[in-house]
Write a protein that binds this DNA or RNA. Structure first.
Lengths: 220, 220
DNA sequence: ACATGTGAAGCGCTTCACAGCG
DNA sequence: CGCTGTGAAGCGCTTCACATGT
C-alpha cells in the first residue's frame, strides 16, 4: 500500500502498479477455483485458495495484492468481491467477439466449445480458405471465405482471432487478421508467427505432448 | 563443458547437467523451425534459428548447449544432427501411446489431430462415461467405457492420458488414469487436478482467452 | 489468536559481452 | 573474421518470515 499512499488518496483509481504477467496467467485459475466453491461459502483464506489452485499461499496473497486487495486480516477474502475484482481486472465485464480461421476438426471443436460462451467470448465468424467448406454450418454459423474476413471483423467488432489452420498458412492468416484490425491472436497452428502490435498466445498441442515425452524419457 | 571435463571423459554419457524446464519447453519450437527449413539447408546459425523461433540468439545457444552442443564456431549448427539431438533429448525416437478420456467435441478433434501422429504419438484408446457414446467410431477407434480404462492402459502400453471431460469429472478421471499406471497427463478440463507422481500439464482454452482479454482491457 | 500484506532474501531464467576456436 | 560457448550481470518471480491490523 506504500505505493499508493505516497501519492495521496485521490490517486487510487488513477495509478496502478503493473501486474506481472505471471500473475495475469494465474488470475483465471483463481477465478475458476472461486466459482467452483460451494454456493454457501462466502469467505476464503489465501491458504485455502492456494491449495485449490495448486500454488503457494504467499503467491496468492501477493497476486491478489495487485488488485488493490481488500482481504481482512485474521479472516480472509470475501469470495463475491474477489470474483468481481478479478473479472474486472481481466476485462471480463465486457463481452468480446472472436473469429476463428481454419475450420478443420479443431476449429469446429472450438466453435462449439461452451467454455468460451460461459466467459463472455462470442464466436462471431468462421473463415476458411477451402471453397468446399463455404456455407457449412458450425454451431449455427456459416463458414465464410477469407475475402470476407476484414469486413466481418470491422462490422461485428471482433477483437480476438483464433488460428486453427495448418502451419504453412498461419503467418498469412495472422497478417490478414492484423490487417483487419484484430489486436489479439490465439494461435493453435504449430508455427511461430510474428505480428507487430498484436498480442499473440501460442497453444501447440503437439508441443505439450513433446514436453511430457521429455519427462517420461527422463524418468526412465 | 566444464561440468563434464571435471568428471573425466568416460562420464559423458552418464552425467548430464539438468535441463531447465524453460529450455525443455522451447526445444519443440526449435524442432518445428528446423523442420520447416528448406530441404537444401544443412546449416543454421543461432541467430537465424533465433529469429525463426522468436527468441534471443544467446538463449538459443545456451539452450542447445544443454544438448552437449556440437555447433561449429564461425559456421553454425548442422541441421540434421541438431534435429536428431533434440528428438533424442525429448524422447521422440520412441513411439508413445496415448489415451483420451472424454469424447466430446474437443476429444474427437484431438483423436483426429494429425499433429500427434506426425510426432509419434499414437492414440490407442478413447473413453467416456456416457453410455450413449459407447461404440461410436472416432478416427477408426471405438469409444469404450471407463471400466475398460485400466486394462486398456496396461495392455496397450499407454503412457500419456489426455483429459477432455467437463471440469467436475477431471479429478476423478485423473485418479483413474494414475491408478491405471499413466505417468503423464495433459489436462484440457478447466480445473486444477492433483495427482502424486504424475506429470500434469494444463491447457485451458478459456484461460488463454482471458489472458488476451486482460491485455485488450489494459491497452484501452 | 489468526490471516493478511509485504520487505527482503533466494532462485532461476535471460541477456550481455567477450574469450575461444574454426 | 564469424559464430559458438559461457562466465557474469541483470531481472523478475517465488518464497520466507514477520510486522500489521482486526
Amino acid at each position: 500500500m506504500r505505493f499508493r499512499s505516497r501519492l495521496g488518496p485521490l490517486s487510487c483509481a488513477l495509478v496502478k502498479r503493473p501486474i506481472p504477467s505471471a500473475t495475469v496467467q494465474r488470475l483465471p485459475v483463481y477465478l475458476q477455483c472461486l466459482e467452483a466453491l460451494a454456493p454457501g461459502v462466502s469467505l476464503v483464506s489465501s491458504e485455502d485458495l492456494a491449495v485449490r489452485a495448486g500454488v503457494n499461499s504467499a503467491k496468492v496473497r501477493k497476486d491478489l495484492s495487485y488488485l488493490g486487495s481488500h482481504g481482512v486480516r485474521g479472516v480472509g477474502y470475501d469470495v463475491e468481491r474477489l470474483v468481481f475484482q478479478i473479472q474486472d481486472e481481466l476485462g471480463l465485464t465486457k463481452e468480446r467477439s472472436v473469429v476463428i480461421v481454419g475450420i478443420g476438426n479443431l476449429g469446429r471443436a472450438l466453435a462449439n466449445y461452451d467454455g468460451f460462451d460461459q466467459r463472455g467470448f462470442r464466436v462471431v465468424g468462421l473463415f476458411d480458405a477451402d471453397p468446399r467448406k463455404l456455407g457449412d454450418l458450425v454451431d449455427g454459423l456459416p463458414v465464410e471465405p477469407m475475402e470476407a474476413l476484414a469486413d466481418a471483423v470491422l462490422q461485428r467488432g471482433a477483437e480476438i482471432g483464433i488460428i486453427t489452420t495448418p502451419a504453412p498458412a498461419a503467418q498469412e492468416v495472422a497478417d490478414a487478421l492484423a490487417g483487419a484490425g484484430i489486436k489479439s491472436i490465439l494461435n493453435f497452428a504449430p508455427a511461430v508467427i510474428k505480428t507487430d502490435g498484436v498480442e499473440v498466445r501460442r497453444v501447440d498441442l503437439s508441443t505439450e505432448l513433446q514436453v511430457l515425452s521429455f519427462y517420461l524419457h527422463r524418468r526412465a
